Amino acid sequence: MASMRDADPKHLAALVAVAEYGTFAAAADALGFTQSAVSQQIAQLERACGTPVFDRPKGPRPAELTQIGLAVLDYARRSLDRIDQMDDRLRSMQRGITGRLTVGTFQSASAELLPNIVAQMRREVPEVDVRLDETDDLDELVRDILQDETDLAFTVDIADDPRLEIEVLGRDRFVVLAPADDVMATRSDAVATAEELNRSTLIGQPDNLTGQRMIDERLIGAGIRPDFAFRFQNNAAVQSMVRSGMGMAVMPSLAIDANDPGIRVLEIEPQLAPRVIQLIRRTGRTLLPAAHQFAAIAHASSAHLLAT
């Protein structure tokens, strides 16, 4: 049974060329084919249509489109236009200047790393649509990558996994936030010891968050028994409570506003192992060039904020 599904773009291009140039010979010259090749392409198109698309008068007179040929010509032009548009779109995507990029992120990366990264992406490739999906559940960030719901994700301390490609962006040290007028904050050494932290009221985040669990594990490993009087989801809320004199907080440096005059940033003695900030993708997944550009910008931006 005849069907236009059996026609391909070469047949449609031959139809348009014959209609525009008038003869099979002129169409062949324009397309760079032999006249017999164009004749074969039109014959294959007519088999797909189930009827002639040209009346072929004898002599030098040009081929004439049949009524069905006129209908197919309109379809051919629209189809070839859409193919050209798709070619343009694919070339743009391959050059990394268009497309959609979905990035998973967590709170402190969103606040400190992403503004510069996204701003530079918009300057360099404004047609790339960067979508962000934030959660402080690091396990969820990994699941979304493995399920292809996100293309890239910022993570912390993810162990080697053959399913993931992991790029280290840098290391983020842990510090103590103290009210600016606290006795420890006024000392010249700017250090909080484990003994002092054991005597202090601490402000943290909910202990069901993976980030807070990392902090708790490091504190316990350093001989610090954290006593949290207040817990807040938001980093800014934790810092605000410290500023108000309600206690101190142990936080990664990326999560704090060090320019806040109401707080003082102290080092921890003994030092806690820094957290490793990473950018991950699923192993074996082909991403748009824009994803590689995003990763390059992320590395450059992180170099200004994180230790190597």
Rank of each mutant, 00 (worst) to 15 (best):
M214F: 12
L288G: 02
S240T: 13
A237S: 15
R281P: 01
V265S: 04
L219I: 03
L266S: 03
E267R: 15
R231D: 07
A185I: 14
R275Y: 02
M214P: 08
G211D: 02
S200V: 04
G223E: 05
N259K: 15
M241A: 10
E267F: 13
M184E: 03
G247I: 00
V191P: 01
M214C: 08
P252E: 06
D257K: 02
L209S: 07
N198K: 14
A258Y: 13
I215D: 01
Q278W: 02
R282S: 01
A249K: 04
R187I: 03
N198T: 07
I268M: 07
V242L: 06
V238F: 09
N235K: 09
Q271V: 15
S188W: 11
S188F: 15
I215L: 01
V183F: 02
G221P: 05
L287A: 04
E196H: 12
L219T: 07
P206S: 11
M246C: 12
Q271D: 00
G262R: 01
F230H: 05
L254K: 04
G221A: 13
G284F: 06
S253R: 15
T286F: 05
L279F: 02
R225E: 03
R285N: 10
N208P: 09
N259T: 14
F230G: 10
I280N: 02
D227G: 09
T283S: 08
A236P: 10
I224E: 05
V276S: 12
F228Q: 13
M214G: 09
E195F: 12
E195M: 11
P252I: 11
A192I: 08
R243Y: 11
R218P: 11
A222V: 10
E267V: 14
L279T: 00
A222C: 06
V238S: 06
E267H: 14
T286K: 11
M241D: 06
S188D: 14
V238D: 03
T283C: 14
Q278P: 00
G223N: 07
G262V: 12
L197S: 05
F230N: 12
I277Y: 02
Q233Y: 15
P252G: 12
P261V: 05
D181E: 07
V276K: 05
A222R: 00
P261R: 00
L287K: 01
R282M: 01
I256P: 05
R218W: 06
L272F: 13
N208H: 15
D182A: 09
V265F: 13
M184V: 13
P252V: 12
L266M: 06
A258D: 15
T193P: 07
R213A: 01
V242C: 03
L202T: 04
N234V: 14
G262W: 12
